[in-house]
Every structure is written in structure tokens, then in C-alpha cells.
Design a protein around this nucleic acid. Structure first.
Lengths: 114, 114
DNA sequence: ACAACCCATCGATAAACGTCGATGGATTCG
DNA sequence: CGAATCCATCGACGTTTATCGATGGGTTGT
């Protein structure tokens, strides 16, 4: 049962909504979209827990997806500014960016430890 | 510059990742997908701030989208278990569900006040 | 009863997305 | 040098998504 319903309403007249910043909505939605996939979420959680750079080949070996698909998902995380990579011989290591905004870091922390 | 790179690696051998629960990833990704849209995020933020039921017609009046599109987005939020509705005469009021899991509530709180 | 309003659903369409196989560059081992 | 490994990119394919117009059911005011 809902409480606190508005008192009076007039037909054909709509009330103002609590203001919501459009730029905030766009930016936050982009961030959430980058995370809103089981594979990418698994990648982020693994990187969060690893506390150390992880080789792409370890994702390819652990997740039941093709190598191009893994690469594609990691690229999405990179474009979203969530991860950075470093080449080391044959291997390429990824880690969560160290300069993540505090809010982003908190978001991930909340998700991973849920 | 990345630090803490693993020491030795063997070609053709992949290391195990920190374990990540697949069911957690699926469920969390679904929740994030429901939120990963500017329109739906705006709706959720408005409902969060309103602290009271909001009529659909107010969203239709405020957001520059057609009425079916607004209805569609609200349906997605309902299917995700985020909102509930009550009919009041001609109008239908939506509000955030009161029985949201604590983690979900915290997630929204963190997003909205960012 | 009729007109006006609110809203969900349906059908359609274009864009975005997830996935894969194939290809090619870069690096290392023998 | 040649073979093998790692990985990003490309092209293709089917699915999902966001959006709209049209329709219809439900409710209220005249």
C-alpha cells in the first residue's frame, strides 16, 4: 500500500519533477552500461580482487568465451576509463585504473562486496 | 606505470582468476542494465528525491519523450523490481519499492548523491 | 451517453550489442 | 629464420534495445 499520495490533481496539468541533471544522467548511464554485462562485471570483480595486473590470457582461459569476445569486452572497459593495460613481452596485463573517481571506486566496491 | 606485475609466466599456461560467482554476476548485471539508461536513471533519481509517489503523467510532461516510451521505461523498472505502482482515479503513481534489498538501496543512494 | 484524459500494449523500425571466425602484427623460443 | 604464442581489429550475424504511431481499455467530468 502506497502512502503519501499528492492531494489534488487537475486533469491536463502535470506537476514538476524533482530536478535531475541531464549531464549527470548521461554520464552515469554510460558508466553503468559499461558494467551492465556479466562478463565485464566478472572482469572488474576479478581485477578488483586481484589487486594486481591480470593477463588477458587468464580471462580467455577462465571465461567460456572466444578470445576476440574477451578482447572486445576489455576494450569496452578501457573506453569507459575503468581499466588500463601494460604490455609485458607477449602478454598484456590489465588492472583497474588507479585514478578512478572516488564515486566510481565506491560504486565498484559496493557491487563487488555485495 | 603499473606495479606489482607477476614474476614468471610460461607460454601456453594460464593462471586462475580470483573466483567470481556467476549467479552474482548475472543478477547484478541485470540490475545495472535496468539502471543503465539516462531516462530510467532520471526516473529513479526523481523518485528517490520525491520521497512520494509520482504520477506517470509528470514524467511524460517533463521528459522529452513520447508517452509509450515513458511507459516502456517504467515497465523496465517494474520488471527489475525497482518500482511499484498504484492507481488513483485516472492517474497511476509510481514510487521506489519499499522492500528494496539494502544493497540495491545503497547503490541507488550512492548514484543519486554523486 | 459522450467527450476528454490517462496509460499500457502492440507492431514497426533503426541502432546498438554480444558473439564468433578470420586475419595480421608483435614477440619469443628453438 | 621459422614456428608458436598472445592479442587487437575486422567483417558478419542474430538478438536486444530505444523509440515512435496507432490502438484500446479504464475513468472522470459534462
Amino acid at each position: 500500500m502506497l502512502k503519501g499520495l499528492p492531494v489534488i490533481r487537475e486533469r491536463g496539468v502535470c506537476c514538476a519533477l524533482p530536478p535531475v541533471d541531464a549531464a549527470w544522467a548521461d554520464g552515469t548511464a554510460s558508466l553503468l552500461k559499461a558494467l551492465a554485462d556479466p562478463t565485464r562485471l566478472t572482469m572488474v570483480a576479478a581485477l578488483w580482487r586481484a589487486q594486481a595486473p591480470v593477463c588477458i590470457c587468464d580471462f580467455t582461459g577462465s571465461l567460456a568465451l572466444s578470445q576476440p569476445t574477451i578482447s572486445h569486452h576489455m576494450a569496452k572497459l578501457r573506453e569507459a576509463g575503468l581499466v588500463e593495460s601494460e604490455k609485458r613481452g607477449i602478454w598484456i596485463y590489465y588492472r583497474l585504473r588507479e585514478d578512478l573517481p572516488a564515486a566510481t571506486r565506491k560504486l565498484i566496491s559496493g557491487l563487488v562486496s555485495a
